[in-house]
Design a protein around this nucleic acid. Sequence first.
DNA 1: TTGAAAGCGATACCAC
DNA 2: GTGGTATCGCTTTCAA
Lengths: 337, 337
Amino acid sequence: MKKITIRDVAKEAGVSVTLVSFVLNAKVGEDGKLDCPVNVNTAARVLAVAQKLGYKRNNAAASLRSGRSHTLAVIITDIASPFFAEMCRNIENIAYKAGYTVIFASSDESAPKFSQLVDAMIGYNVEGLIVAPCPGSEPILERMQFYNIPTVLIDRDVPGDSFGRVLVDNVHSGRQAAEYLIKNGSRKIEMLSYSLDIQSLVDRVAGYEEAMKDAGLEENIRVHRLSSSSVNVEAEVYEVMKEAKERGVEAFIFPSKRMAILAFSAMQALDMRFNKDVDCVCFDESDVYNLSVPPIPHIVQPLGEIALRAFNLFQKMLKEDVPPEEKNILLKTEFIK
Amino acid sequence: MKKITIRDVAKEAGVSVTLVSFVLNAKVGEDGKLDCPVNVNTAARVLAVAQKLGYKRNNAAASLRSGRSHTLAVIITDIASPFFAEMCRNIENIAYKAGYTVIFASSDESAPKFSQLVDAMIGYNVEGLIVAPCPGSEPILERMQFYNIPTVLIDRDVPGDSFGRVLVDNVHSGRQAAEYLIKNGSRKIEMLSYSLDIQSLVDRVAGYEEAMKDAGLEENIRVHRLSSSSVNVEAEVYEVMKEAKERGVEAFIFPSKRMAILAFSAMQALDMRFNKDVDCVCFDESDVYNLSVPPIPHIVQPLGEIALRAFNLFQKMLKEDVPPEEKNILLKTEFIK
DNA sequence: TTGAAAGCGATACCAC
DNA sequence: GTGGTATCGCTTTCAA
């Protein structure tokens, strides 16, 4: 009921609060011994008393005094998206092992909410921020810079050379998808995309086009751009697939999970079968990919590595000035067969 | 760069720190006016100065002094599970509107990690905990009680009458599934489950059995219990489905997403088609359910409502003693056609 | 090795 | 309405 403070422990152990603080903050060295200028016996006694009394450090007080919070903020656009959820889990695990607590939040793609969140995080004295920026977040991210809080971008880029970045090479992933299909014998390979300029999709398309050119299949390049705003994307995709069937398209690249699912629905209606009538490579992760036999090959972001690199970069930025070449990390995607 | 404190604001505005604190903490009344004993002009000036200087409250200091943190902890078993991810998102949204920050963490079904997390949360002075307990968490949850921190259980139950609970009626959901299939004309309705005693599955099975009895189909009750530990569940499920096909089973209930996917894979291999050869009702949420036409009916937990009820219950418990009948909330599942 | 005492930045109490 | 100041629990000099 009553909170046990460092004073209670000190009194009970018959030492000063200073000693208690020393002992409680000492790191255990490799030899298993406490790394602090305190008599081992005293230290042991303090530890025992703290345990007995059920002492819990008051982080607010510690943070206030020391200026450190051992807290990392992660703001993504949508924690309910499987990609980000898995990302959060990875970051949390890594951070946890390093003694950090992580505060997650979703911006919901809203700049005002993002702004409020950033303020809240500053108020929490977070030591760093890992963020998937939403549209309009550039000026807000400047605030982190003002407070000198190391900030690492993931998933999406925004300009600014103070940020760290851990992004994936989407051009390469588009290439990877196309090359796989080419190697598998397809020639007429087409791609779905949005008419919107979403950078990751633009890059994937570019990679696809490069690979097609390299294979001398330049004439077969064809990208179907869906008007993502349309209420009737289903019909649009259906038309694309129907026409593709008539034209004898051999393979498709679906650069997002959403598009893949739309396409599969259409294919089902058109009685087109994966691996028989048409080959394909998808992106992201979905139960649907693993349902068919053989599973549908897909390309995923290396989540674990993004998380690890982002956290390590944050820690490095916290400690020292990191040169630009180390602050911009570009990872390759993973191809899952 | 330099942190702006309340003193800086006070000095710049030519008032005392007390006034600044009053103004900055005042709630805006319905009339848009600040609800505090401060001259409106002074208040406006203070607000303007704070804004100009870019003042951000130091939560650590505020929390230390006031004992309040406006922070809610949410510990679930796995933040990467879509169910929990969506749950977190809902809780975060609701809590955010109420002025709370949420700290999420996953226990990974590990009691020791859960214990560490709980200690960390206590150290953060969280005002409440919403938790999906993992096996072995009972004694750890007692600690929250010791510190008088309102605790609300979701998804799974553990004994203890100090906790709040927002759970779903799984017996009812099993019944719902069976009744739907019966109404749709099936008689030979069977169910997959695990040999393990997972309470939610046990309840769903019970509901199924009740509904079958009520419909006079007692003899058709059949529950296939998979040895969940088996490395070869796929083969096990395949056998069940194959044999079911031979016996002419008309419908299946798959009480978890995992089982549904296993079953669909097997069905594909056996050339059994949903809605044609066999009807079914699944649980949880998956892309797979929406792929087929018509979509596969499934039963989901009412996420938004669980989140809302859990948060409201936490707030109520924080303010006052809540009678047991209000502390135990049982919700109905949602049937999605 | 040990301890006394000075703050960290806010809030809360009390006096004006 | 307004302001002075003790205080929350801890870390951090500095001195012994």
